[in-house]
Design a binder for these strands. Structure first.
Length: 560
RNA sequence: GCGCCUUUAACUCAGUUGGAUAGAGUAACUGCCUUCUAAGCAGUAAGCCAUUGGUUCGAGUCCAAUAAGGCGCGCCA
């Protein structure tokens, strides 16, 4: 809850406004409305801890040179009892502010005091979000894109939880429709082939070995008793046999990837309870459909989509988008989520405006639906594109990927880049146990801290204080500044649905810690006070590393 | 043809709502362990931020056009 960055910023803004008021009252500057100005953290630390452009921004309305305004402000500001020690004027008229020690010690104190909860906020309090991700086709194994989607979706869900949202994770199971028919056809052919019939697999059916395995197992149980049966009966039996196994497999594989869903929502439910038919009826009742070439079309263009599209085929079967519309009505209207967040592959981007057009036509608030598009993953090994698992030689999917690389590496790597950027996944790097591997780099920082603390305890030097006193080397203050950034980083990451900010933050934190480690000895600190203060800082850094990694469900080992 | 995304060091990428001298890692080179984990740190070298124009005190960042690459525009999902 404590956000020291924000606290300092708010205080500084008040100080500036107060100083302006004083100057106006003294007649030193004209009484003009204050233009909007910014308080930011300068990139260059020699420019202080905070800087403002207020003098430059108000130069025009006050009809005074920026530096003159800056000097007046500087003189009128009251620093007593604040987090700030002093101000400097620099460059074209920047005002740079320097924090005083109490801010740094208070920051470490806050981290230690709040512990596992440090960084949590309540901006989403009282609101409920449904995060739908992966939703892989249950007719076969998950691919690499699903592995990225799983890490990403799970990270987004966690970020929302950390910012106070009530979050539910959901997997939409496409257990109905055309692809199930294709699944049935594929199973049927393999089964009949197993029964000795000479038929060939259609080209557009599923060619994978998993289908052959299902057919074999089915044959082991039932022999050729379905060989002469009615095709419909045979297909149903095959699907009822194989599909539940596949869905269980998805659950199992995702759980081993540390993803736990609250709901597995079945598409078949929407067909069975009439929701799908109801969508067509509602759109038709509202006059938003028309018939052409025997099919029912939706006037999507009228609602902002690029073109109209078919809802019901000439053969009477609805297209895939109708259950999808029903599904989103269910999320936002029936289940009343304040936000529905979908993680989708970028190849689906054309579909989003169409779905939104239909929802708009049904008076659903489409601002409640946010789609996170995820670009393709390219796997690289030895400088070349990799398609097959090194260990099993099978195509690399979510499961086979984890045969080749550690789970922590997969979850970290898939969250290194923001969703909307093509991702080149370096398989060699992910297995490498060295500093080049960012996962190890971060984990190593944590293990190193644990080692320091173990050593202190062993030598009887460990003192658990949460009130550090003297931390003022550059390595110490920069580390603390970064600790203070954690809550704001999480807030921003949650707002833009971007877990990659967490991996970037953690990597930077590890860097700052390693620098601190190199420059400042804890065990051999000059005074007991300094030793205790640095111990507190170490504990605070480790705490935040754990908090950050827990969001991504990555382990922080105590020994490496 | 229309739409979305991408373009920053040799390679992979950061770069907050426009701010001060554009940053990391890898690869190359140079240093630092009798001292808490060298899986680390410090340093050197490396840039026409794709191109052109615009907006303004100020642009890698915003706008427009162009170029290159990826993806999408089914009675597939």
């Amino acid at each position: 809850m404590t956000n020291m960055m924000e606290a300092a910023q708010v205080q500084l803004r008040e100080m500036l406004l107060h100083a302006l008021g004083t100057l106006v009252a003294e007649g030193k500057i004209p009484a003009e409305p204050i233009p909007s100005f910014k308080i930011e953290v300068p990139a260059d630390k020699s420019h202080g801890d905070f800087a403002t452009n207020i003098a430059m921004a108000s130069a025009k309305t006050l009809r005074m040179p920026p530096r003159a305004i800056a000097e007046l402000l500087c003189g009128a500001m009251q620093f007593e009892g604040t987090y700030f020690a002093r101000a400097e004027i620099a460059g074209p008229g920047f005002l740079n502010f320097f924090l005083q020690k109490t801010w740094f010690t208070d920051t470490v104190k806050a981290v230690l005091h709040e512990g596992d909860a440090y960084g949590r906020s309540e901006s989403g309090k009282g609101k409920r979000a449904l995060v739908e991700f992966v939703s892989a086709n249950p007719t076969g194994p998950m691919h690499v894109g699903n592995a990225r989607g799983a890490a990403l979706g799970d990270g987004i869900a966690a970020l929302l939880e950390w910012t106070g949202w009530g979050v539910e994770r959901e997997f939409y199971v496409n257990d109905a429709g055309n692809q199930i028919e294709k699944f049935a056809t594929s199973l049927e052919v393999r089964y009949l082939q197993r029964c000795g019939q000479d038929i060939t697999m259609p080209e557009d059916a599923y060619q994978g070995q998993d289908i052959v395995v299902h057919a074999e197992h089915f044959y082991e149980q039932h022999g050729d008793q379905y060989a002469g049966a009615d095709s419909r009966e045979r297909r149903d039996a095959l699907v009822n046999f194989a599909l539940p196994q596949n869905i269980e497999g998805l659950e199992r594989d995702l759980r081993s990837y540390r993803v736990e869903y609250d709901h597995w929502f079945r598409e078949s439910k929407l067909h069975a309870d009439g929701s799908v038919a109801d969508i067509v009826k509602q759109l038709t009742d509202r006059g938003y459909t028309y018939e052409q070439d025997g099919a029912v079309w939706f006037r999507a263009e009228q609602f902002g989509a690029d073109k109209d599209f078919v809802l019901v085929r000439a053969n009477g079967i609805p297209t895939y988008i109708v259950p999808d519309i029903a599904y989103h009505v269910d999320k936002l209207v029936t289940r009343r989520f304040d936000k529905a967040i979908n993680v989708l592959g970028a190849d689906h981007h054309g579909y989003v405006p169409r779905l939104k057009a239909a929802l708009k036509a049904l008076d659903v608030d489409t601002d409640k639906l946010d789609v996170v598009l995820m670009q393709m993953v390219i796997l690289m090994r030895g400088g070349e594109v990799a398609k097959l698992s090194k260990r099993s030689g099978k195509a690399i999917g979510l499961v086979t990927l984890l045969e080749d690389i550690p789970l922590d590496a997969a979850r970290f790597f898939f969250n290194m880049r923001e969703a909307n950027s093509h991702f080149e996944f370096d398989l060699d790097l992910a297995v490498e146990q060295s500093s080049q591997n960012p996962v190890y780099y971060v984990q190593y920082a944590h293990a190193r801290i644990c080692s320091i603390l173990r050593n202190l305890k062993q030598e009887g030097l460990y003192e658990e204080t949460d009130a550090p006193t003297a931390l003022d080397t550059p390595q110490e203050t920069e580390l603390i500044r970064h600790l203070a950034d954690f809550p704001a980083m999480l807030e921003a990451a949650a707002r833009v649905y971007d877990p990659s900010r967490v991996t970037k933050y953690a990597t930077e934190l590890a860097t700052l810690f390693h620098r601190f480690y190199d420059a400042c000895s804890v065990k051999n600190a000059e005074t007991p006070e300094l030793c205790a203060s640095r111990t507190a800082l170490c504990r605070a850094a480790a705490q935040i590393l754990r908090n950050a990694m827990s969001i991504l469900k990555i382990d922080c080992p105590e020994k490496m």
